[in-house]
Amino acid sequence: MLEYTGERVIPDLMKPANALLLEHLARYQFSSYHIRGRVLDLACGSGYGSQMLAKYGKKRIDELIAVDVDPVTIDYAHKRYNHPLVDYRCEDATDPLLPQKLGMFDAIISFETLEHLEDERQFLSNLYNMLKPGGTLVLSTPFGKGRGKPCGSPFHVHQLTIDEFNGLFPEYKEVKMYYQKGVLIEPPYPGVKYPLGIAVCTK
């Protein structure tokens, strides 16, 4: 059984009304409208979201590859959230060889990954190189004081500013920005301070 640390979402160890759990479920439901074909859930964690995507998108997806760097977590995900369409694998999101290992995808989902990584550039390069032309990337991260600045979380390298996050996707043909506050995900409204951003990018 995985241990709940306050960072990794493990629904079996959390109350149904836990705010963190509800926020993560909302992101997966939001992203379910953007998946089709061959799908990657990069940094899938305990696997609840990968299974959720497979159930919601069973008529639109062919295969879902769910990847996390921790072998214990992947073993838990495979046992607890098994689904015929989901293939759980243990890989590093910043491995330069990841595109060769996993291949190409019609849609890539990666939630709350960026802030954990030292090698942001390699991670973003992997995402782009694994996405098919016309494919969709849905990526989220919490906002903070900016790149290279302390953010108060022992689990995060740093947390980007809104402007830094918005500037991550110049190579994509189309980028739509959404922002989340609680379970509400919406385009930005003036005067509202959002703790987290979600980019929906088309290659």
Rank of each mutant, 00 (worst) to 15 (best):
G152N: 02
V175D: 00
R27D: 00
F143E: 00
A17F: 15
E63D: 08
P16K: 07
L85A: 07
K79V: 12
I10F: 13
L131D: 00
S140Y: 00
F111V: 10
D95I: 09
D87P: 06
H34G: 03
L53R: 00
F143I: 03
Y189G: 06
I74H: 08
G57S: 02
L2W: 07
Y33G: 12
Q180V: 13
S153A: 14
E7H: 12
I35K: 06
L53G: 00
C201R: 00
L22Q: 13
Q159F: 04
Q51K: 15
G191W: 03
G103P: 03
S50C: 11
L117Y: 07
S125E: 12
G134K: 01
D75A: 15
L160V: 11
L64N: 02
I198L: 07
A107I: 01
L137V: 08
S31A: 15
P99N: 02
Q180F: 08
N82C: 14
K58M: 15
E115K: 10
L53E: 00
Q180C: 10
P142L: 02
G37C: 06
L25S: 06
C90R: 11
F143N: 02
E118T: 15
L64Y: 05
K132F: 05
K173M: 10
P99W: 03
I10H: 11
N129S: 11
F155K: 03
E63P: 04
E174L: 14
I185P: 02
V183C: 11
E118L: 13
D106K: 07
L97D: 15
L160P: 09
L196R: 10
L21G: 05
V192T: 10
L117R: 06
L13K: 15
N129L: 12
G152L: 03
E63W: 08
K176E: 11
L13D: 10
Y28N: 07
E63H: 12
L124P: 08
D95H: 10
E120M: 11
E112W: 03
H83P: 04
Y128Q: 07
H24P: 13
I61L: 06
F165Y: 09
D75F: 13
K132G: 03
L139E: 01
A66F: 08
L160M: 13
S32C: 07
S32I: 04
D163V: 13
L117Q: 07
M104R: 13
M130S: 02
C151G: 09
S125H: 12
G146Q: 07
V39H: 04
H156L: 04
L20A: 15
Q122F: 10
Q180P: 13
R36V: 05
Q122T: 15
V175K: 01
L85M: 11
R80E: 10
S50R: 03
L2N: 08
E91G: 10
N129H: 13
G37F: 06
K203C: 02
V72G: 12
G152T: 00
P154S: 02
D87S: 15
M1L: 14
M14N: 07
R60T: 09
N129Q: 12
T94K: 11
I35H: 06
E174M: 13
R27G: 02
T202K: 08
L124H: 05
L127K: 05
P195V: 01
E7N: 13
G146R: 10
H24E: 14
G37L: 06
V9R: 00
E112H: 06
I74E: 04
G191E: 01
D62R: 14
I74A: 12
G146K: 09
V175C: 05
L21P: 11
